[in-house]
């Protein structure tokens, strides 16, 4: 496990920066709304969603019916319902770890899991578990710091959350290089811009996600034809050997 943590940590440094810079203000807001660090810890432990927890501060300050709370949570986070689609196979063989991986599938963890591979000699399951758990711990620690000492911090951290934008951009570029087709990436841009123009920035995520799915289904035939990844090295060798035998 130690080896897995060591291998996972460097990949999570951008998330450390990003989660601290949005976790600390969250804790501070929560404290100002009358909830102490224990609440910050509890919420970050069991919710683990930035956009949801910021919204929760307002709801918990004024109170709101539980049905409304459930509806708000659902609408804010619809995109989470689709992230798992990319990992059904991968998580299915992980035993108990699977349940934690599913719970911890945030935007940032999803992005990292799409782009990283365990180095040689490190167990893949433990590696991705460490990535998820490290990210989760940054989020918890950030919100506790914010609640305990947010008002004492004088370091000007404005703009530190750009680490998240940069992370998504870097992964986007890597996928642009590695994917056999650029159509899904281009559809993602088109769908999100369309949603932005029609619905504005405040309610962007839900329509953008739906547009992406619709466009991906419309373009399924041409995309799927191009979405054949180069066979892995040993598969290639097997194919060659088969050809030599015949």
């Amino acid at each position: 496990m130690k080896k897995a943590i060591k291998a996972a940590f460097p990949h999570t440094i951008p998330i450390l920066l990003g989660y601290l810079s949005i976790g600390i203000p969250f804790g501070l807001l929560l404290e100002n709304a009358g909830y102490n660090a224990l609440w910050a810890f509890f919420m970050s432990l069991v919710i683990f969603s930035g956009s949801m927890q910021y919204l929760a501060v307002g709801m918990m300050a004024t109170g709101l019916g539980l049905v409304e709370v459930a509806m708000m949570s659902f609408l804010v986070n619809v995109r989470y319902m689709f992230y798992g689609l990319s990992f059904i196979e991968r998580f299915s063989k992980m035993g108990w770890k699977k349940y934690y991986m599913i719970f911890a599938l945030t935007d940032e963890t999803y992005s990292l899991l799409c782009s990283v591979k365990a180095p040689k000699g490190v167990d893949e399951d433990k590696f991705i578990l460490c990535i998820a758990a490290l990210n989760h711990s940054y989020w918890i620690v950030g919100s506790i710091i914010g609640a305990l000492a947010g008002s004492l911090i004088t370091f000007n951290s404005a703009g530190m959350d750009f680490a998240m934008t940069a992370l998504f951009l870097v992964i986007f570029l890597d996928q642009w290089r590695d994917y056999p087709t650029h159509i899904p990436a281009l559809l993602g841009i088109a769908a999100t811009l369309l949603a932005l123009f029609i619905f504005g920035g405040e309610n962007l995520a839900l329509p953008a996600m739906l547009f992406i799915l619709i466009l991906l289904f419309i373009g399924r035939t041409p995309i799927q034809k191009r979405l054949v990844f180069q066979p892995l090295q040993d598969e290639k060798e097997t194919i060659q050997m088969e050809q030599e035998v015949s």
């Binding site: 995109r79 899904p184 993602g188």
Partner: peptide
């Protein structure tokens, strides 16, 4: 169809998240 979506989704989601970060 779900296998396909799972494979094609990551680049589209990255594009969405980048624009999401810049929406303001």
């Amino acid at each position: 169809a779900i296998d396909y979506i799972g494979q094609a989704l990551p680049p589209a989601v990255m594009a969405m998240l980048i624009i999401y970060c810049l929406k303001n």
